[in-house]
Design a protein around this nucleic acid. Structure first.
Lengths: 79, 79
DNA sequence: GTTCATTTGTCCGTATGTATC
DNA sequence: GGATACATACGGACAAATGAA
């Protein structure tokens, strides 16, 4: 799932993986995506990598983060 | 009524729900809103969450609180 | 005046999640 | 990767104010 030796940065791969789960309807609008700690475990990456992946998804407009609550699939993403 | 899995903090949702009751004329100026304990039961939240909701309504200028008495709809709100 | 119930105020701790360094 | 800070949410306990019995 994650190619550690390939040219694509890990955080991009993680972001793409999450986006695939959103596109597949596994992660629904206004529902939380896995927490940073969960992403760390699921993809076996460092916390900073998970955060950069979420940041990338934010920049893509696919998710929105609420401090103290979590990161959620944007309403506009597969609304 | 309250979406526990959504991105909006619970105390914001509770405050919005009460404000909706004020706007609808269900809660009248100079009349008490439900007590903290009542809000705890009605919305199935912790007392701290109910208190933060009331605090938010105070900041919005919609209610005023009297220690030992209760919280009342502001005269200016739907006067 | 005392007692009691109700209500708000305050502090404690625990857990989870994000933000920052 | 680790440590710390801040925000959300829950739960418990006790104090203080109010009003009624």
């Amino acid at each position: 799932m994650i190619d550690r030796e390939g040219p694509t940065p890990l955080y991009v791969q993680v972001a793409d993986a999450i986006q695939a789960r959103i596109d597949a309807g596994e992660l629904l609008p206004n529902r939380p995506i896995p927490s940073e700690n969960q992403l760390v475990q699921e993809y076996a990456v460092a916390r900073g990598t998970a955060r950069k992946a979420i940041q990338l998804l934010r920049d893509r407009g696919l998710v929105a983060t609420v401090v103290g609550r979590g990161t959620y699939v944007a309403t506009t993403a597969n609304g």
